Amino acid sequence: MLLLRKVAVLAFSLLVSSAGRASAEDFRIGAIFPLSGANADYGDLYMGATELAVSHLNDAKFLGGKLSIAYEDSQALPQQGVIAMNKLVNVEKVSYVLSAFTGVSKAISTTAARSHTVAVNGGGVGPDLAELGEYFWNVIPLANFEVRAMAPYLVQKRGLKRFVLVYVDDPLGQSIKRELESSLPSLGAVLAEALSVPSNAQQFSGVAARVRDAKPDVVYIASFGAQQSQIIKQLRDNGVTQQLASYSGFAIPAIASLPEAKGALFTTQRIDWNSGDPVTKRFTREYQAKTNRAPTAYAANYYNAVLLFGTLASALQKAGLPITGKNLLAKRREIGTFDLVGGRVTFEKDGTIRSAMQISEVDGEPAVVEIVAAP
Rank of each mutant, 00 (worst) to 15 (best):
A201Y: 06
L180W: 10
Q242V: 15
V197A: 06
S246Y: 07
V219K: 01
A208T: 04
S175A: 12
V211G: 10
A254C: 00
L172V: 01
I221L: 11
E193T: 00
K157D: 13
V164W: 04
V164F: 01
K157G: 00
Y167D: 06
Q227C: 06
W137P: 14
F163Y: 13
S196H: 08
L180T: 00
L235C: 09
V211N: 12
I252H: 05
Q156S: 10
E131S: 15
I231M: 10
V139Q: 06
G159C: 07
Y167T: 09
Q228H: 13
R236V: 07
A254H: 08
M150G: 01
A149P: 00
Y220F: 15
A214G: 07
Y247R: 06
I176T: 04
D237T: 03
G159A: 11
R148N: 15
G249R: 08
L154A: 03
T241R: 14
S196V: 13
F136R: 12
F163T: 06
V197D: 07
F163Q: 00
F136H: 15
I221T: 01
S196W: 09
V240Q: 11
L184I: 00
A251H: 13
L180I: 05
K233M: 07
N200Q: 15
V155H: 04
R236E: 09
A143C: 06
R210V: 07
A226N: 07
I232E: 11
A209H: 06
M150T: 04
E146K: 00
G239A: 07
Y135R: 07
P152T: 09
V166P: 01
A143S: 15
A245T: 07
G225F: 09
E134R: 10
E179G: 02
V190S: 14
Y167K: 07
A143H: 09
F204C: 02
D217V: 05
A149K: 04
N138Y: 00
I252M: 13
V166M: 01
F163V: 08
G173R: 00
L132A: 01
S246C: 08
G159W: 02
V155N: 05
N238R: 06
G239M: 06
V240D: 14
A226T: 12
I252A: 10
K177L: 14
D213A: 15
G173E: 03
Q227E: 14
F136P: 02
G239C: 11
L180S: 05
K215T: 14
L142E: 08
I252C: 01
Q230H: 05
V190M: 03
A149W: 04
L244C: 09
L187H: 05
A201M: 08
F163L: 04
D217P: 00
Q228I: 14
L184S: 04
P152R: 08
Y153N: 02
G133Y: 01
A251N: 15
K233I: 12
L160D: 02
P171S: 08
Q174I: 11
L187C: 08
R212K: 15
F204A: 02
Y135C: 07
S175G: 13
V211Q: 10
I232Y: 06
P185Q: 00
L184A: 09
E146L: 04
K233R: 15
I232A: 10
L160P: 00
P185K: 01
